[in-house]
């Protein structure tokens, strides 16, 4: 007998017609390794979830998940922890992506934090992130009983991530104990956990920012338009260019809104994400700009400079 033809199989809309290009040997290798990690989680855990933050890394991670299980659908839902302060473009993009790939999306908002009026402007970036993002995430993981959660973090992003495991172990209560992490030899991941314990999994650990962009271009993965330069209304605050995405962000005395050619290297809550001046309107432009760039991408994240060793601290608290 020959030719099994997948009949009711999973075909994302738009698969095929977009302009793809062959992957370099390097990207092929990264892609295969990430697919292996994503499959491992599906095979070894009972109830995994993929964190979807709408950014470029999430976009690549979701695309890899779709490839990993084809012709099946990814056997887990996406989870977006919405702080309610994301750029409007991000939310629109999220909804269109879910439709395009035909995946299940769960959206969680920390209603308690919202009721207490926590927000990035009055509460400060640190508290806002802690309550709306970290606590919100923990609430969602507990609510659905997820035992494994994918995150799009990369080791090249930040110093304390350079030694992060691909399978990062969290004890009950989601705490990350740096002394209690398992050595990872070969690609033999230890997927065993006791009840109540969870694993955070980082399939993009070995990707760099440049890899993400080159893969996004080669695979024609849709991105939030904010990554591309356009004329946008911004205010200059503490030396950073902040885009007023809606009128919840009041202007401080002496501040004026101006229109500039800007784009974003990293997207989060809009009052906490700084834009960079740029004329890069295509992916090719972005990649060219990257190659001559002299600043790291997290420079535009206000949360990171807010306090010293902030990534380390956030991670212990349960942040990705």
């Amino acid at each position: 007998m020959t030719a099994h033809t997948p009949t009711s199989s999973f075909e994302p809309q738009g698969h095929g017609p977009l302009a793809k290009r062959p992957l370099s040997a390097h990207l092929r290798r990264l892609e295969a390794e990430s697919i292996e990690i994503i499959r491992e989680v599906a095979a070894a855990f009972e109830n995994p979830v993929m964190l979807y933050s709408i950014g470029k890394d999430s976009g690549v991670m979701l695309h890899l998940a779709v490839k990993a299980f084809y012709p099946s659908k990814p056997p887990f839902p996406l989870l977006h922890v919405d702080t309610t302060w994301k750029f409007q473009d991000m939310i629109r993009h999220r909804d269109s992506i879910v439709e395009r790939y035909g995946v299940d999306l769960l959206i969680h908002v920390n209603e308690e934090g919202l009721a207490k009026g926590v927000n990035p402007i009055a509460s400060g970036s640190s508290l806002h992130t802690q309550v709306m993002k970290t606590e919100g995430l923990k609430q969602a993981l507990d609510k659905y009983g997820f035992d494994a959660a994918f995150g799009g973090a990369r080791r090249d992003e930040e110093k304390s991530r350079a030694k992060e495991r691909i399978f990062s172990f969290r004890s009950e209560g989601h705490t990350w104990d740096p002394r209690n992490q398992r050595p990872e030899l070969w690609r033999l991941y230890n997927t065993r956990i006791a009840k109540g314990e969870t694993i955070r999994v980082f399939p993009l650990s070995n990707w760099t920012e440049l890899d993400i962009w080159e893969y996004t271009r080669a695979e024609a993965i849709p991105i939030v338009p904010l990554y591309l330069a356009a004329e946008r209304p911004v205010v200059r605050r503490n030396g950073m260019l902040i885009m007023r995405d809606d009128n919840r962000m009041p202007l401080e005395p002496g501040e004026t809104e101006e229109t500039r050619w800007v784009r974003f290297r990293s997207l989060g809550c809009y009052p906490l994400s700084a834009a960079v001046e740029s004329q890069a309107t295509t992916l090719d432009d972005i990649i060219d700009e990257m190659k001559i760039s002299r600043t790291s991408e997290r420079q535009g994240r206000l949360i990171d400079v807010d306090e010293s060793a902030s990534m380390e601290k956030k991670k212990r608290e349960g942040y990705f």
Binding site: R217, T282, L283
Partner: peptide
């Protein structure tokens, strides 16, 4: 339309 279609680069 929030999706950005990637242009075909040379």
């Amino acid at each position: 339309m929030s999706e950005t279609l990637v242009q075909t680069a040379p």
